[in-house]
Write a protein that binds this DNA or RNA. Structure first.
Length: 353
RNA sequence: UGGGGCGUAGCCAAGUUGGUAAGGCAUCGGAAUUUGGAUCCGACAUUCGGGAGUUCGAGUCUCUCCGCCUCAG
């Protein structure tokens, strides 16, 4: 019987995952991490679900590491004018990093499962994340940062299920968390108000100018960290057309605005690459097969990619809206994630090369 | 002080021969969403600078007052 550690949040997904793993005959042990933001109630839920299924369960305190790796990253990224992706970093550093290591230290080389909607596939000895059956819930984008070495031991029990099916199972099996709403928002940010969070954590905000691309001052903003590329809401500027944040200049404390049609980019540069196969192998794949997602809920677009030193250059077949530095660029081949990187710059090329 | 122009929601702005207030932007609410952002749907002037008058009926016509812009000295 295989031993598997299941990360449990107390929500419906990990609860159903537990049921499925048991059904498959795994010897399951539950673990819930306290990152400083889990409520007593959520922890209790996780514990009770574990008990309901007769599995051992433990709580591990990772608050200190979480604050250091995720919250600090979040704050610092905004401070330098980029847009962080805390969930993606958490997956790499915490959920599929620190936590796995802690469990391995205690229980040896066990399997590790979570309630994510994604798949792991093995092709010619290589493991890949792949899109879930339920494309609406697919989380491969957020998982693309996870170190390759962990994949052989990861199990996603929900890979082939839709959210509806998961809910149905939860109801049928009388899982106590069945009717919980989907979680969303950033787990460590109260009230979903990240601007307030940044203020409370000492991010300096200086008022500055909203500047139209042609140089016209359009109004006053209250700190560059309150904005992100592509943002439209909350600018408070009435103009003949909708205006979007085109660029954030921390140095001059300016937020550059532009109209919708000028918000598209032809490509991007990414660093901090996480490769699931090497570039040579990618080269063997026809470039025609490669697609890219620049945000979690966008349709993949065909791309051409090129490695330049340790950075990746990506050129889109169709222009993409508001490519935002700090966010993730994930390259897919079919449904598989072949590599991902952190966007450092958007590229705008004119017609000719 | 004379001549001309203008004054419609937070902003911009339609409004025809008087017939019962377009649209855009912003804002707010909801949907969606393991980041941020986008997106979608919905709501947003009993009232047209104030007052009086003509009319069955006025943002649209008349008078008057107020405010602003502009051209003359």
């Amino acid at each position: 019987m295989k031993n598997v550690i299941l990360a449990m949040s107390g929500g419906i997904d990990s609860s159903v995952a537990l049921y499925l793993l048991k059904k498959e005959g795994f010897n399951v042990r539950g673990v819930t991490m306290q990152n400083g933001s889990m409520s007593e109630k959520e922890i209790k839920d996780a514990q009770l679900v574990a008990r309901q299924n007769g599995v051992e369960w433990e709580l591990v305190d990772i608050e200190k590491e979480f604050k250091k790796e995720i919250e600090k990253y979040f704050i610092e990224t905004y401070a330098i004018g980029m847009t962080p992706n805390p969930c993606a970093v958490c997956n790499r550093k915490i959920k599929f990093g620190l936590l796995i290591e802690m469990m391995r230290r205690k229980y040896g080389d066990v399997y590790y499962a979570t309630g994510h909607y994604a798949r792991i596939v093995k092709i010619q000895g290589n493991y890949f994340f792949s899109q879930a059956t339920d494309l609406k819930k697919d989380q491969s984008y957020f998982l693309s940062t996870v170190k390759k070495e962990y994949l052989p031991k990861i199990i996603f029990p929900l890979a082939d299920l839709t959210k509806e099916e998961v809910r149905k199972i939860a109801e049928q099996k009388n899982i106590r968390t069945a009717k919980k709403p989907d979680s969303q928002e950033i787990c460590f940010i109260p009230e979903d108000d990240y601007r307030k969070y940044l203020l409370d954590h000492g991010v300096q905000t200086k008022r500055g100018n909203f500047v139209f691309v042609d140089g016209t001052v359009m109004g006053t903003h209250d700190g560059t960290c309150n904005y992100t590329i592509g943002q439209r809401k909350g600018l408070g500027i009435s103009y003949s057309e909708k205006l979007f944040v085109k660029e954030i200049k921390v140095g001059s404390n300016e937020v550059i605005l532009d109209v919708h049609q000028n918000m598209y980019h032809t490509g991007l540069i990414a660093d901090r690459l996480n490769m699931f196969i090497n570039m040579r192998e990618i080269g063997e794949i026809s470039q025609k097969m490669l697609k890219c997602k620049v945000r979690s809920n966008s349709k993949p677009v065909n791309v051409k990619i090129k490695l330049i030193k340790d950075k990746l250059e990506v050129l889109f077949e169709e222009k993409q809206f508001a490519v935002s530095p700090g966010q993730l660029c994930v390259i897919y081949c079919d449904e598989k994630v072949v590599l991902s990187g952190r966007i450092v710059a958007a590229v705008e090329k004119t017609e000719k090369e």
